[in-house]
Amino acid sequence: MAITIAIELNREIDIPGGYDEVFDLLADVPKSASYFPKVDKLVDLGDNVYRWEMEKIGVDKHSIQSVYASKYFSDKDAGKITWEPVKGEGNGVVRGSWTLTSKGDDVTHASFQTTAELTLPLPSLLKLAISPVVKHEFNGLVDTYMNNLKKAF
């Protein structure tokens, strides 16, 4: 048995750094990922495809782990960094984007949007109880990531 949990997040932040500097950091997936909390491993699969293996949550046989892969695309002139899911990698399907706009020499506005579908090996009866917990955890991770990015500049 398995349950699938869908998550959608949108964030708007101002990062205290110049456009080129912020874009270059976010387009560099390993560097950007280093600011994302609870990443156990980021595996470079080649061709700008990365598999994210998050830390396990829980205890022993009752632990769950999110694993997914995405292919990244960046267009500096358009201010867009996007990622699309890679099928057959892990238990998650994640897509999203950053949209960046300059707000002067030393501030860049960043719009972050992502959707995720995580399939977890749990009985369907647990979906109502587990879904809010997983969504809360994911929101917390993204909020910490945003704060870490601000501190990087």
Score class of each variant (00 low, 15 high):
Glu55Lys: 09
Gly17Gln: 03
Ser32Ala: 15
Val22Cys: 13
Tyr72Gln: 02
Trp52Ile: 03
Lys31Arg: 15
Tyr35Val: 04
Lys31Cys: 12
Lys41Met: 11
Glu55Asp: 15
Ala27Met: 10
Ile15Val: 10
Val59Cys: 02
Ser74Arg: 02
Leu25Ile: 13
Gly58Met: 05
Met54His: 03
Tyr50Leu: 09
Gly18Leu: 09
Leu45Val: 04
Leu42Phe: 08
Ser70His: 02
Glu55Trp: 02
Ser63Leu: 01
His62Asn: 07
Tyr72Asn: 04
Val67Thr: 08
Pro16Arg: 11
Lys31Glu: 15
Asn48Ala: 05
Met54Trp: 00
Leu42Ala: 15
Gly17His: 03
Lys76Phe: 07
Leu26Tyr: 05
Lys71Asp: 03
Asp44Lys: 14
Tyr35Pro: 04
Tyr72Gly: 04
Met54Val: 00
Ala27Lys: 06
Lys71Arg: 11
Trp52Cys: 00
Ile64Lys: 03
Val43Trp: 09
Val29Met: 15
Leu25Pro: 02
Glu55Gln: 06
Asp24Gln: 14
His62Gln: 07
Asp77Tyr: 04
Lys76Gly: 04
Lys41Ser: 15
Asp44Tyr: 08
Asp20Phe: 09
Pro30Asp: 12
Asp47Arg: 06
Tyr19Met: 09
Asp24Met: 14
Lys41Gly: 05
Gln65His: 02
Lys76His: 04
Ala27Gly: 07
Lys61Tyr: 08
Leu26Pro: 02
Ser32Asn: 11
Gly17Arg: 01
Ala33Asp: 12
Met54Leu: 08
Val59Gly: 01
Gly18Met: 09
Leu45Gly: 13
Ser66Val: 07
Pro37Cys: 14
Lys38Cys: 09
Lys41Glu: 14
Ile64Cys: 02
Asp40Met: 10
Tyr68Asp: 09
Glu21His: 15
Ser34Cys: 15
Ser34Gln: 14
Asp60Ala: 12
Leu42Cys: 15
Asp28Glu: 13
Gln65Glu: 05
Trp52Gly: 00
Gly46Leu: 04
Gly58Cys: 04
Tyr19Arg: 07
Ala69Val: 00
Lys41Pro: 05
Ala27Arg: 04
Pro30Glu: 12
Pro16Ala: 08
Lys61Asn: 09
Val67Ala: 06
Asp44Cys: 13
Met54Arg: 00
Ile57Ser: 08
Gly18His: 13
Val29Ala: 15
Ser34Ile: 06
Ser74Lys: 02
Ser74Asn: 13
Lys31Asn: 11
Ile64Gly: 10
Val59Ser: 03
Phe36Glu: 01
Val29Gln: 12
Tyr50Gly: 06
Lys71Leu: 05
Asp28Trp: 07
Leu45Thr: 10
Met54Pro: 00
Asp77Pro: 00
Met54Lys: 01
Val49Arg: 10
Leu25Ser: 08
Lys41Arg: 13
Lys38Gly: 06
Ile57Phe: 02
Tyr19Gly: 07
Gly46Trp: 02
Gly18Trp: 11
Val59His: 03
Asp24Val: 05
Glu55Arg: 08
Gly46Ala: 06
Pro30Val: 11
Ser32Lys: 08
Lys76Arg: 13
Gly79Gln: 08
Ser34Trp: 10
Tyr68Ser: 11
Tyr35Arg: 15
Leu26Met: 10
Ile15His: 00
Lys71Glu: 11
Lys56Asp: 05
Phe36Pro: 00
Val29Glu: 14
Gly46Asp: 07
Asn48Glu: 05
Phe36Cys: 01
Leu45Gln: 12
Asp24Phe: 12
Tyr50Gln: 13
Ser66Trp: 00
Ser66Arg: 01
Leu45Ala: 13
Pro16Cys: 05
Asp20Lys: 13
His62Ala: 06
Lys61Gly: 04
Lys31Gly: 12
Asp44Ala: 14
Arg51Pro: 00
Asp40Gln: 14
